[in-house]
Design a protein around this nucleic acid. Structure first.
Lengths: 237, 237
DNA sequence: ACTCGTCTGTGCGTTGACGCACATACTGCA
DNA sequence: TGCAGTATGTGCGTCAACGCACAGACGAGT
């Protein structure tokens, strides 16, 4: 199910909402709105990307996969961003995997057309670069958080990052998958999630999680979350 | 001590060596070659940058400083790169500190002039973006390494990253400073360094370290180092 | 209703890194 | 020569996270 986009639909992607009318008019005929199921891989490490994605309700996770199979998330992309920056940065590929973390919709555009519009310069070009800088901050803060903070804090951060990009308060995701994203043991997530559940911040039943008290999560998170949030607002807000 | 650069000097910076003659001719009058002492701060978190730097023999560390004062390195820049990508990415500032990790020389150019040349497009523009993508890979791999690997492995990675950017095999750096970079305890570095010393890979006397057996270090490092190295070669080589 | 597969909860020994305290050793300078 | 400052080495106890094993508990489908 893919259809050409309307201007109103496009505005659900913050990046597409921020470009000039002229640029949007050129892009619209080439943007397709598609549904992505949980777990779908948009591109593999080192693989040429055919499309660049502008998620609306979907959330995409950028994962690095070690030789021994263990994984760690380096960043997460939702309606605030795009997947496939390597297309316009010039590298064409990146050494990580992009996988759907939360099912939903996304726009997609052929890489070549994306690159054409980027090369024209203008607001779109600048916005892509500013988004890339915001993503760099997110990745940096992930590095810092991985080094210095506890699993509990990181789970809070991850939940808040997801919630910011979610159309509702529900998140379909097993503890096993969350553990893979954070690069920790599944049991570690069980413990942390139970603490959050006891505190009344979330409910969690077999892969169906609901965020009940966002303020509670914010009270348990490390400073990393706010640093990233502030930087996104500054660069793209 | 600052002097205007010659073409031959400029070629010591890999990025400056890779741009067109025309671009270099425009930049050269604006490039100053300066010496940086160990520990000098090029810019603070959130602070407007006056200059963009293209190191030759100096090495610059990108550090994040937590509210409680603990620190962690997110990336390292040497003759292969530049400091101050936020100038052309559009954010003007970044939430981290750039500090001289190894004394040496660097070119610097006024931010405004840097931005002008970037905006012209062309090879310089593209090379800046490709370098930025390489840096993203380095930061990503730091995140992964922080999560999944031991202090021993990370020290090897850090030493190799430094050695790649060093004009000799000597590195002036106390264990305390290395610990700050890696975001671990000083004692942890003492232990790891002693193991490397016993293996004959390095010698270490009061802040004066020499890399004796690079192949040895490579045998002890995790895959993270090679991933970054390969990606730098692919994007900039 | 039953079974199979999946998801979550729990216990236990191990380990890598932490925090602290302090000893030792080297350097520079008075 | 002696002293102060700095760098490195070492030994603890503590703790968070790991790895493994296994016990429920729930859901889908036959």
């Amino acid at each position: 199910m893919a259809s050409t986009a309307t201007q109103e639909e496009a505005s659900q992607s913050h990046l597409l909402a921020g470009i000039s009318e002229e640029e949007l008019a050129r892009l619209l005929p080439n943007l397709q709105l598609v549904s992505l199921p949980l777990g779908q891989v948009l591109y593999e490490s080192g693989e040429k990307m055919d499309y660049v994605y502008f998620p609306t309700t979907a959330i995409i996770s950028l994962l690095y996969i070690m030789e021994n199979g263990s994984t760690a998330e380096i960043g997460v992309v939702g309606k605030d961003g795009m997947v496939g920056i390597a297309i316009f940065m010039g590298g064409d590929t990146t050494p990580n995997r992009a996988v759907v973390q939360s099912a939903g919709k996304t726009f997609k555009i052929k890489s070549a057309l994306m690159k054409d519009e980027f090369t024209r310069g203008g607001r779109f070009h600048n916005l892509c670069l500013r988004y890339t800088q915001a993503l760099i901050t997110q990745i940096s803060q992930t590095a810092v958080c991985n080094r210095l903070h506890s699993v509990d804090q990181q789970l809070c951060r991850w939940l808040l990052l997801s919630h910011d990009r979610l159309p509702s308060d529900r998140l379909i995701m097993t503890q096993d998958l969350i553990a893979n994203m954070l690069g920790v043991r599944r049991e570690g997530i069980t413990h942390a999630a139970k603490r959050l559940q006891k505190a009344g911040y979330i409910s969690y039943v077999r892969g169906d999680m609901t965020i009940l008290d966002r303020a509670g999560l914010e009270s348990g998170v490390c400073e990393c979350y706010q640093v990233v949030r502030t930087e996104y607002d500054r660069l793209l807000g």
